[in-house]
């Protein structure tokens, strides 16, 4: 038991760093993913993660594999695409999903093109799939900072954000915080995607946001429990994925996302809100 679960982390520093990184990511990105899910914006998160690519790629083109340049490039590109898509949705007849799809497809193409200008396939792989097993001090610090900022911002924005999710008309009626909640939330999405981009890569960053959130949605009925259980599932997926990667010698990023995927599939089958769950927990009906 000890050999299997604990020894890899005691023995190897890169495993400890990977664990710290994926735990920090789970703590911040998963609650954001839950709000994306509840706002029916899951696919929007996916689109946004691709939108980050050309910014990060431009940073890479100018400065090589520099953490700062790629991070700032990614954040700027993500925010530009989010705002532009919102603007197009409001000012043209296209809905937000269509306008986002258009922007992110262009972004993805531009991103891959820019990275390949510099020429090394290994770097392209790094950008697309992240490098959770090679996190340096600066990357860890960045991920932890983004998570800290996210948790404080969520605590502060919680009430306006919840209202913005289920009754935006009421929020607009009583206060001017509606755009603050909406755009503040989008900025948090972009920040966490950049954080996920360094660990899991652009293509899979959304995995750790949405899969644990979807699993938790199937178990919990109240929002606070839902947030807590999604974070627990994400933390467990991070550890399980790293251990699988270590013992079975498979890439860590996909292993983490697949671990969260297994949690989702199990929940889908067993949870009260899932497929078989409602039959499993069937109890006699009440008088009234």
């Amino acid at each position: 038991m000890f050999e299997f679960f604990v020894a890899p982390f005691l023995e190897f520093e890169f495993m400890r760093r990977a664990l710290a990184g994926s735990l920090a990511l789970a703590l911040g990105a998963t609650p954001i993913g839950l709000f994306l899910l509840l706002r029916r914006m899951s696919l929007m998160g996916d689109a946004m993660s691709h939108a980050i690519l050309p910014g990060a790629a431009l940073g890479y083109l100018a400065f090589g594999l520099s953490l700062g340049a790629m991070t700032i490039g990614g954040i700027v590109a993500g925010i530009i695409v989010a705002m532009a898509a919102g603007l197009v949705a409001r000012a043209s007849i296209l809905k937000e999903d269509a306008s986002l799809a258009a922007f992110y497809l262009m972004s993805l193409a531009a991103g891959v093109l820019i990275v390949s200008l510099r020429g090394r396939n290994l770097d392209l792989l790094h950008v697309l799939f992240g490098s959770v097993l090679a996190l340096d001090d600066a990357s860890l610090l960045l991920i932890a900072s983004i998570t800290t900022l996210t948790l404080f911002a969520l605590a502060l924005l919680y009430r306006p954000l919840v209202l913005e999710c289920f009754d935006p008309g009421f929020l607009r009626g009583v206060s001017r915080l509606s755009p603050v909640a909406h755009y503040g939330f989008l900025i948090l999405v972009v920040l966490n995607l950049v954080s996920g981009f360094h660990t899991l890569g652009t293509l899979m960053a959304v995995g750790i946001m949405i899969l644990p959130a979807a699993a938790a949605r199937l178990w919990a009925t109240r929002l606070p429990t839902m947030i807590a259980s999604s974070v627990i599932i994400a933390l467990a997926s991070g550890a399980a994925g790293l251990l699988t990667s270590f013992h079975a010698d498979v890439p860590a990023g996909p292993a983490i996302v697949l671990a969260a995927g297994i949690a989702y599939v199990l929940s889908l089958i067993l949870a009260p809100g899932g497929l078989i769950g409602p039959r499993l927990y069937r109890r006699p009906h009440l008088e009234y």
């Binding site: 009430r159 999710c165 915080l177 919990a220 929002l223």
Partner: peptide, 24 residues
């Protein structure tokens, strides 16, 4: 205009009527 499926309790929803006093 309301999203019924959002997980929020009746108390929490109704308490938002106190917004002018408690704010965000």
């Amino acid at each position: 205009d309301i999203d019924h499926s959002f997980p929020v309790s009746v108390f929490d929803m109704v308490a938002m009527g106190l917004w002018r006093r408690v704010g965000g």
